[in-house]
Simulated assay, not measured.
Amino acid sequence: MQKAAKYIGVISGLATITLWAVLNFFNPHSNITGTDTIVISFLMLFLPACLAVISSLTSKQSLMMIAFVWSLPFSLYLVFTPGVFALFGVTCIAYLGCFLLMKLSTNRKI
């Protein structure tokens, strides 16, 4: 179960980073000249995704929960948008699933 948690965490983190790049640099509806959107989405999506990848690789449960809670508000906002960016909600829920798998695997070891 620990390997599954590791794979889910890394894949969801990398998927979020990829979606973030598409949202900010390849989205025809985004404002390229404004940096406010890039900075806010960097803080609310990119950094928690990096934290989720680090958490998965180091098996730190608390960091995964922090990544989930940190990215939840912005991910919920994007879930209600039409298009591919609703997948941010899926990756955020994957953080929670990864946390639960990590928690279950440590409880079974005890």
Rank of each mutant, 00 (worst) to 15 (best):
M1Q: 10
Q2T: 02
A5R: 03
A5E: 00
K6M: 07
Y7D: 08
I8D: 04
G9F: 00
V10K: 02
V10A: 05
V10Q: 08
S12F: 01
S12C: 10
G13T: 01
G13E: 04
G13Y: 00
G13L: 09
G13V: 09
L14W: 09
A15Q: 06
A15K: 00
T16N: 11
I17N: 00
T18F: 05
L19C: 01
W20A: 03
W20P: 08
W20L: 02
A21C: 10
A21K: 03
N24V: 07
N24I: 05
N24E: 12
N24M: 08
F26V: 02
F26S: 08
N27A: 05
P28I: 02
H29R: 01
S30R: 03
S30C: 06
N31L: 09
I32P: 02
I32A: 05
I32F: 03
T33Q: 15
T33A: 13
G34E: 14
T35A: 08
T37E: 15
T37I: 14
I38F: 12
I38M: 13
I38H: 12
V39P: 00
V39T: 06
I40V: 13
S41V: 12
F42K: 06
F42M: 15
M44N: 14
M44T: 15
F46N: 08
F46Y: 04
L47P: 01
L47S: 07
P48C: 04
A49W: 01
C50G: 14
L51T: 06
I54T: 09
S56L: 01
S56C: 00
L57G: 02
K60C: 07
K60S: 14
Q61Y: 09
Q61G: 09
Q61E: 15
Q61V: 10
S62G: 07
S62L: 14
M64W: 11
M65D: 04
A67R: 00
A67C: 02
A67N: 07
F68M: 04
W70N: 05
S71Q: 14
L72Q: 04
L72K: 07
F74C: 15
S75G: 13
S75K: 11
S75Y: 05
L76A: 09
L76D: 03
Y77P: 03
Y77F: 13
L78K: 14
V79A: 13
F80W: 06
P82A: 05
G83N: 05
V84M: 11
V84C: 09
F85Y: 15
F88D: 06
F88I: 00
G89Y: 02
G89P: 13
V90Q: 03
T91H: 07
C92E: 12
C92D: 14
Y95T: 08
L96R: 06
L101I: 12
M102A: 02
K103Q: 11
K103P: 02
K103H: 11
L104R: 15
L104V: 01
L104P: 05
N107K: 15
I110R: 15
I110W: 05
